[in-house]
Design a protein around this nucleic acid. Structure first.
Length: 225
DNA sequence: ATCTCGATAGTCT
DNA sequence: GACTATCGAGATC
């Protein structure tokens, strides 16, 4: 079990306010931990608790926006609170939340989530055989099996995009509007103890490798790598 | 558990 | 033409 059940109490979940995204990008990356990523699709709703983030600021050589605006990175320069979904390595998508004021090219990469709702749908999107899906989703009571499947489904930026069915079509989505793709805060943040936030070096980059702008929660197993 | 390696295509130089 | 904010399979320990 996670340290706190984000959906406990069934309180209405509402999107985070755009003003939150407008703030300091490193601060937003910390703030997005434990928030809920929601994708309402025709086939059903998918929800994940954000377990791992990375901050990319405009003055950072590892940031796509470091050399200015291009057609690809233009969403980063748009208003905060929108999605920046890009394609990389010829096969993967990565999902970011645009941060900072309009005109500043910054974003937070979502690297891993803990599946909360829509396990079956995620498994299907990830290409697991139907029989295996039945077997695995039937044994989620077992904490070990639960974590194992969680990391298989959403334990990495490319994996979670596939599980959530996020591709080019999701690029530019306003994350503050419920109905399709959005990020919700904890129904009642004050009711839960906030675990300690850990910061480490970011993963999979070559430039500015020493900046400690990858964030996780202490003792949270639902992370990548 | 930890590693190497290949696949694959959009973007920028 | 070179590079990538990656993943999974297969090898090896």
């Amino acid at each position: 079990m996670s340290t706190c059940d984000p959906l406990e109490g069934g309180a209405a979940l509402t999107p985070l306010d755009r003003e939150l995204y407008r703030g300091d990008t490193v601060e937003v990356a910390r703030r997005l931990l434990n928030c809920l990523l929601v994708h309402e699709t025709d086939a059903g709703t998918i929800v994940g608790r954000i377990a791992e983030t990375e901050a990319y600021t405009q003055d950072d050589p590892a940031c796509h926006a470091f050399r200015g605006m291009t057609r690809r990175n233009s969403p980063m320069f748009g208003p905060p609170g929108h999605a920046y979904v890009y394609f990389t390595y010829g096969m993967h998508y990565c999902f970011n939340a645009v941060t900072g004021p309009e005109g500043v090219g910054e974003a937070v990469l979502i690297r891993a989530v803990e599946p909360i709702e829509g396990w079956e749908l995620m498994s299907r999107h990830r290409g697991l055989p139907e029989e295996e899906i039945k077997r695995l989703t039937a044994s989620l009571e077992d904490p070990v099996k639960r974590v194992r499947l969680a990391r298989k489904l959403c334990g990495g930026p490319g994996k979670l995009c596939q599980a959530f069915d996020l591709g080019g079509a999701a690029n530019g989505t306003d994350l503050t509007c419920p109905g399709s793709l959005w990020i919700g805060g904890m129904p009642n943040p004050e009711a839960f103890p906030v675990p300690k936030i850990c910061s480490t070096r970011r993963i999979g980059i070559r430039l500015n490798v020493d900046a400690p702008w990858r964030f996780t929660l202490r003792d949270d197993p639902y992370t990548s790598r």
